[in-house]
Write a protein that binds this DNA or RNA. Sequence first.
DNA 1: CTTTATACATGATGATCATCATGCTTCCAT
DNA 2: ATGGAAGCATGATGATCATCATGTATAAAG
Lengths: 176, 176
Amino acid sequence: MRYPPEETAEKHRRILEEAAILFRERGFSGVSVSEIMKATGLTHGAFYNHFDSKEDLIAKSIEEASAKALEAMQPIPQYVKTYLSTEHRDDKGRGCLIAALGGEIAREPAAQAAFTQHVEKTLQGLAPPATSKKGARRQAIHALSTIIGALVLARGVSDPELSGEILREARLALGE
Amino acid sequence: MRYPPEETAEKHRRILEEAAILFRERGFSGVSVSEIMKATGLTHGAFYNHFDSKEDLIAKSIEEASAKALEAMQPIPQYVKTYLSTEHRDDKGRGCLIAALGGEIAREPAAQAAFTQHVEKTLQGLAPPATSKKGARRQAIHALSTIIGALVLARGVSDPELSGEILREARLALGE
DNA sequence: CTTTATACATGATGATCATCATGCTTCCAT
DNA sequence: ATGGAAGCATGATGATCATCATGTATAAAG
C-alpha cells in the first residue's frame, strides 16, 4: 500500500543508517540487501523503491557515514585520543569509515567519489584553513594516515597485547 | 591422472602465488576458487586436492605473501620511500598485504593468526632488536601505521592530485 | 468521490559459488 | 608387473544473491 511521504522518508533514512553500520561491520559483500532491509524492519521487495541498486546504496551510505563523522570531529589531539581508543577499535559499525572500508572502496568505483569528498573534508577539519599555519595540512595528512593505519593493524591482529601496544604507541608517537 | 610429487608441489606453489595476487587485487570474496585455479592453468576440481577449503587457502596465501614481503624488507628510510611510491600504490597485487586486505582480515578469523605473525615480524624487521635503541619499537609502529594509512587513503581517493599529495606529505612527515 | 500512482510484501528468476561425486589415467609401493 | 591410490577434469548440488514481477491497500491528485 501507499504511505505518507514522511514515513517513507523516515524509512529511507533508516535503511541508510542500518546499511552504514552493517557495511562497516561486515564489508560490502558481506551484507545482503535482504539483511539490510530486515534490519530496518522491511523486506527486500521495498528496496528498489528507495535505491537504484546495491551500488547506489553503497555510495549513499558512505555519504551518510561521512556526514555523521564530520559532525563529530574534534581538534587533532582529542581526535587522536578517541580514535585510537579500544572502544573505537571494538566498535567498527559506528566507527571510522576509512579504516573499516578503505580497502574495499579502492575496488568499488561507485564508492570513490563520496570517499574522496570524505577524505578531503576530514583533512580540512583537521587542518582548518583558518589556522593556516605552515605545515598544518601536512600534519593533518600525517595524523590521519597514522591513526588509520594503527586502527587497521589493531583490529586485524588477534593478540590483544599487540593490539593494545599498537594503539598506545601510535598515540604516543603522535604526541600524547 | 596421477602426477609426480615435484609437479604437484609446483602446482601447489603456483596456486598460492596466484591466490596471493588475486586476493590483494580484488579481495577475498571478489575472487572465486575457480578463477584462482584457472589462473594457474588448472580447473576447480583440482582445488580440494591442495587445500581443505577456501578459508584454508586464504590463511596459507597470507603466509605466502608475508614471506615474500619479509624477504624484501629494508631499513625504515628506504622502506618508506618505496612503500609510498605511486608504483606501489598502483600495484596492489604485488604490494603490501596489510594495506590491501587489512580491513577484510579483521572480519576473517581464519586469517588472523597468519596476519598477526606478519605484523609482528614486520615490526621486528623495522626495529631490529640488535639496534635496540630507545623508542625503536615505537618508531616502527609509528612508521608502519603511517605508511599503511597513507596508502589506503591514496588508493581509495579518485582525485589523482589528492592521492599524490597524500603519498608525498606522508613521506615528508616521516622525514623524507 | 474517483482515479491513479506509490510503497510495500511475496514470490520468481537467473547468476554465481563453494563444495562434492565420479571417472580416468598415471605414478608408486609391493 | 600389478593393485591401489593420487591428481586432475567434468559435471552435479544446494545455497545465496541481486534484481524483477505481481498484487494490494492506501494516500494524494483531479
